[in-house]
Amino acid sequence: MTAAVKETPVTPLLEVRNLSKFYGARIGCENVNFNLYPGEVLGIVGESGSGKSTLLNCLAGHLPSDSGEVIFDTRADGPQDTLTMSEPERRMLGRTDWAFVHQNPRDGLRMRISAGGNVGERLMAVGARHYGDIRQEAGDWLARVEIDMSRIDDRPSGFSGGMQQRLQIARNLVTGPRLVFMDEPTGGLDVSVQARLLDLLRGLVRRLGLSAIIVTHDLAVVRLLADRLMVMKGGQVVETGLTDQVLDDPQHAYTQLLVSSVLQV
């Protein structure tokens, strides 16, 4: 007999129950259920219009959901339904424990404010009022995302697409969030820049022990980053499982189509 392993039940960081969102009669996403555990990276893949971005926006509170529960394990009060939470609380989560990386960095950055100001904004939003400290922290984070310190006072409009995306990531991670929502973080970047960004993201996620939900249509991205995968089609989740399992042995017809559609070089 092996020694009994003492199991401590782990509270999921995010627990999603029967989440639905309709656009009139049309389905945005329907009856989505999943648990996300601390340190886990969940990939959501699917074709355009499959509801993956809708789902992400519902989870992050950017879109009102029609029904369901999104229970987040908050630091202070334990598991709380973020959909019924008051707006100030939800917005507070949005700038402390949560982070949202947009596909287009222009949506997530303030283009008329310097790189340092962009990173510092979240710090100031949670009450930092010491210029030297804020600047130091911003500089640290720029270094972590491989942006040269000499660019700290430049506006992101003068940055390349890859740099803008890295800056957006720095800006989001500076307050030490526990859950990161990413909407096509590598979309619109050329492959070599994509590779560098993925490498950086993988490093950050592993080192900081972040949980993340990554929406993408790029299977290579989820293969690299995600522990688990959810495949969506027409607003429904059609398949879930470990990433390698889903990609190597797809069960649902749509997943099979998706996997076989990847171009090989």
Binding site: G120, M124, G127
Partner: peptide
């Protein structure tokens, strides 16, 4: 309404940086 005034300090930060 929600007393979210961090952004105001971003302006002052930009002043000092520049």
């Amino acid at each position: 309404a929600l007393e979210e005034y961090g952004l105001m300090h971003v302006k002052l930060y930009e002043d000092i940086a520049k």
